[in-house]
Design a protein around this nucleic acid. Sequence first.
DNA 1: CGCGACGTTGATTTGCCTCAACGATTGTGG
DNA 2: CCACAATCGTTGAGGCAAATCAACGTCGCG
Lengths: 194, 194
Amino acid sequence: MFDTLDAHITRSIQLTDSELAYFHSLLRPVSLKTKSFLLQAGEICTIESFVTKGCLRKYCLDEAGHEVILQFAIEDWWIADLQSFTTQTPSKLFIQALEDCSLLTIPYEAKEELFRKIPAMERVFRLMVQRSQAALQDRFVSILTQPAEERYLAFLKKYPQFPLRIPQHYIASYLGMTPEFLSKVRRRLAEKNK
Amino acid sequence: MFDTLDAHITRSIQLTDSELAYFHSLLRPVSLKTKSFLLQAGEICTIESFVTKGCLRKYCLDEAGHEVILQFAIEDWWIADLQSFTTQTPSKLFIQALEDCSLLTIPYEAKEELFRKIPAMERVFRLMVQRSQAALQDRFVSILTQPAEERYLAFLKKYPQFPLRIPQHYIASYLGMTPEFLSKVRRRLAEKNK
DNA sequence: CGCGACGTTGATTTGCCTCAACGATTGTGG
DNA sequence: CCACAATCGTTGAGGCAAATCAACGTCGCG
């Protein structure tokens, strides 16, 4: 159960077996049914979650009520509203299961205790945030510079497995376009390849 | 010279005087003339810089050669291409002085040594990245959901001092619109307020 | 079976871009 | 210290990518 998570960590730092066991002792397994929410706007994000099975989406709503999807998370990804988690203030985001999920979660206080006992773990999480920052920056630039069709093709190339398990209108939202337009983009691509 | 930087750090962790002195010993002051580059695409980002005086911009170029401004940095901000810095691989970004600047820089190896000697410093930088991540996420959402006029008004409210020292076409790029269009947005706003 | 979720299609609209031209200001080398 | 170029902001005409709105077909599921 902890294997891929441990591999994840030991890529950044070395831990002794007892340190690893201590880390495991802080984690709480959680199951989540399709469409149920791990977090809703207004709540404080009390846990960070590592996905061992299933698929989730993190999104926010604009004033008009439109969803903007900020992240998908599948197996071996972490998901949380770090802003709310770190400051322990109400979130503006939703985290929802798109499939039945199994998670390993760590509560806020446990994570702080982990950092006190094993300061090197700060490094693991720092590098994690840096990677997600880099990914967000790439998306930011692509939205500003690439037309919808190129964004969709790049998405297919980077995450070929996602369209197999994620409804198309969520992918449209992730790519910053309407579901109708993504449908038209796909038709144009299909006609090209005839 | 170190005052605001120290205040910055002690907001996240407590350091002894000797730890602080050690940290200072790792920093190198750098001066930068207007329009000169701290980093150019293709180079490896070897330093992280804390701005004690002046103003810089960080940007990338798309295939068509258009600039996309990712960050402005003024006094008391850090600036670097973290992606390139962390992996020590060639950057795709430019960092350029918009005014004559004074910086406190820390080289890659010195930062690693700092983390080895004072692991708690990982926390300082983790929290820094988290804050910049949150800021980028807000910009991301605003570009996807707000029209140009609202983005500009929100920018003025958040950074009222920036238009006084940053050329307008750079602000347009930061807000994800053309300089021509920002000019038209401003005219419409001026006419409203008559 | 009936309903909701999902994807598609077409008609219309629009926010923003592109391109081109033009003043105003700055700064810099002769 | 002036002249000229570069930088910067503005304006207008025209075009386009993508949004909006509305209707419809198809699944899968309770």
